Simulated scan of single mutants.
Amino acid sequence: MKHILLTGASGFLGSALAKYLAECEGKVSLLLRQKSRIDHLKGLESSFEICRFQKDLDIKEFVARIKPDVVVHTACAYGRNGETELEMLDANVRFGLNILQSLVDNKKSATFINTGTVLAPEVSTYALMKDQFAQIARAVATKSPDIKFINVRLQHMYGPGDDRSKFATHVLHVCKKNEPELKLTAGEQKRDFIYIDDVVSAYATLLKCEEKLETIDDIEIGSGTAPSVRNFVEKIHKLTGSNTKLLFGALPYRSNEAKHCQADISRLANLGWKPMYDLEAGLKKMIELEFLQ
């Protein structure tokens, strides 16, 4: 049985993965900051060995003791909550490197599955740091024969319980509350939206098939389709029966706005994975569950 170390369990993706892993055979440990809350995992705490770290040495000692076979790294900081660049660097670069270096120092054979981004480095500070971490981690793994590094290029996930600052959740709540208007860009940009349950099943496939992956590998996770943002918003508007006025074109595009994001899911398909939710089915489930919470 594999021992899995999961980071970011206080977040949207991390908590969803933790719930899935709690039902699987094997041992699961969570690595959390001292003040991180895991409200989404209430009642499941006994399913995990939890380490709340304060300093780098705590991470090193925990990794040395539990000797994980796989690290699933989802922890990150988007910069939406007023984090400084230094705090973002700590979350998006140093944290993962501390774990990776601890594996190397202990000469522990392990697979490190990193949650990366499809955004180009010039799009945002977050994207830049995620790209930097992936590059550094590849360099570390290249020099370390015991480490396999898998970089997941994750598309735009959505689902119930995500942070209200996220685009899909924000649009859903504005429409559901029938707020007078919603200011948007023209919405011509194409995005690959993937429902959270499909993201979790994709990670489950990677965990099951890790031995089939390259020593240093990049895997794309998405639905494989790319509707326009306008189409995505209009579908939410219709499914909620909203009276909110959609003001497309009221906001400018961000500088360096990505025009087309779409995953090539052929690698995952070859491993036996396929998404179960198309856009309408995913949004219907999100709407149903979001307002039961």
Rank of each mutant, 00 (worst) to 15 (best):
H237T: 05
K42L: 07
G241N: 13
A64Q: 13
F193H: 10
A75G: 06
E188L: 12
Q262F: 00
L128D: 14
D198V: 10
M276L: 14
L292W: 02
R94Y: 04
D217T: 02
E220I: 03
L97W: 03
P180Y: 00
V171N: 00
V229Q: 11
D56F: 01
G272D: 07
S10T: 07
I219K: 09
E23W: 02
I59E: 08
V70A: 08
D39T: 14
I196A: 06
L172I: 13
G161M: 08
I99D: 00
Y158V: 01
A202H: 02
K27E: 15
D217S: 10
T111E: 06
L206Q: 11
Y195S: 04
Y195H: 12
E257Q: 15
I66Y: 08
A226E: 06
I50C: 11
V104G: 04
C209M: 12
N151C: 00
G116W: 13
I196P: 01
F248Y: 06
E23C: 12
E211L: 13
G26D: 07
N243S: 15
L13W: 09
S15T: 09
E257K: 08
K19P: 04
L247P: 05
Q132H: 09
A186P: 00
S46T: 13
A263R: 09
L17C: 03
E211T: 15
V118Q: 12
K2M: 13
I236P: 00
R65H: 06
T240Y: 00
K245H: 06
A127E: 13
A134D: 14
P252Y: 05
F62P: 00
C51Y: 02
D58N: 09
T169D: 05
M129S: 10
E25F: 03
F53A: 07
G43N: 02
K183P: 05
A263V: 11
K42T: 12
A258M: 15
G187I: 10
G116N: 08
K27I: 10
T215P: 01
I196H: 04
A9L: 04
I38Q: 01
D264V: 11
S223W: 11
N243H: 14
L41K: 08
F112I: 05
M276W: 00
I196C: 07
Y277C: 05
I136Y: 13
I265H: 13
N98G: 02
E49G: 01
L30H: 03
G8Y: 03
P275Y: 04
T142I: 06
I38W: 04
G116M: 11
E45W: 03
T84P: 09
P227N: 08
K166L: 13
S144G: 08
K42F: 07
L251A: 06
M129E: 15
T84Q: 12
E280A: 01
L32Q: 06
C51K: 14
K166M: 13
A137H: 08
K67R: 15
L103K: 10
K285I: 03
D162W: 04
I50E: 06
A110K: 02
D217N: 11
V140G: 03
